[in-house]
């Protein structure tokens, strides 16, 4: 991990008086799988949205692929792939049509698009479904297709916001295989998840609570630091304690993730 692909310094995002992301500083290296963990409303989605250019930061600095989030969002957009929490493909389009559409808006040339389409259909086991309407696919397939569409333009950085919620265990493992493969080819992957087993698949994880970083390290280092067997236990220890504290201070927000 020599080159950094995402850097933030004291990055802050407020919604009115509510601080969704509070002075977050991270450095993510190329080819790294970087996990974001946190309870609902911890600020994971907001942070990812700021980095993708969907939201403007309030204060602080951030660069993505070397471009400034304040001034170069158009260039950032060409260098990232994004898979949002909500399933964001067109249900009334077929698998192939979805791929063609996203290829089109990323400006892929026709021959390149054909090649990528074949690749996605093959690698994600979707070739039998190329002409089926997306609405009828099992959920695991939809998620894989969404990932495929997010990676269509071969972005050096991939943002995945809870990509595996609702996916069955086998499909989830296959999904993670793909993520590992992609990272193996040098793509940086930033991923949020609710599955603590998945935290263990990441190279490093960031644990957030009410917008702040409360831990940032490799899963093994975190486990040995807190003398826990699993990331689940580490998380409950860390976040559980924080929630207890904020509750006693009577400030616990309890609001859902801001839009």
């Amino acid at each position: 991990m020599h080159e950094t692909s995402v850097t933030t310094r004291e990055l802050t995002r407020r919604f009115g008086r509510f601080v969704a992301v509070d002075r977050v500083s991270i450095e993510v290296g190329s080819g790294e799988i970087f996990g974001f963990l946190g309870a609902n409303g911890a600020g994971k989605t907001t942070l990812i949205r700021v980095l993708c250019g969907l939201l403007k930061p309030t204060t602080g600095e951030a660069t993505v692929a070397g471009y400034d989030v304040y001034t170069q969002s158009e260039r950032i957009k060409q260098n990232i792939g994004y898979m949002s929490q909500r399933f964001s493909l067109y249900e009334d389009l077929t698998v192939a049509e979805n791929i063609e559409f996203y290829g089109g808006i990323y400006g892929l040339a026709r021959t390149k698009l054909r090649q990528k389409e074949k690749e996605i259909l093959k690698n994600f086991g979707l070739h039998r479904h190329a002409d089926s309407l997306t609405a009828g696919l099992p959920f695991g397939f939809k998620q894989r297709l969404a990932l495929g569409c997010a990676m269509l333009h071969e972005p050096p950085i991939l943002f995945l916001d809870e990509p595996t919620s609702g996916v069955d265990p086998r499909a989830r493992r296959e999904f993670w295989d793909t993520i590992h493969e992609t990272a193996g080819r040098g793509t940086t992957v930033l991923v949020t998840t609710h599955f603590m087993e998945e935290a263990e698949y990441c190279n490093r994880v960031l644990i957030m609570h009410v917008g702040r970083i409360i831990a940032l390290d490799t899963p093994d280092a975190l486990k040995s630091r807190f003398e826990k067997r699993t990331m689940q236990e580490v998380f409950l220890e860390l976040v559980g304690k924080e929630i207890g504290e904020t509750r006693t201070r009577g400030q616990h927000g309890e609001q859902g993730e801001k839009p």
């Binding site: 957009k77 060409q78 994004y82 949002s84 964001s88 808006i105 400006g107």
Partner: peptide, 8 residues
């Protein structure tokens, strides 16, 4: 949202 993160 998906379209907005693309260069469109």
């Amino acid at each position: 949202e998906q379209m907005l993160v693309s260069p469109v």
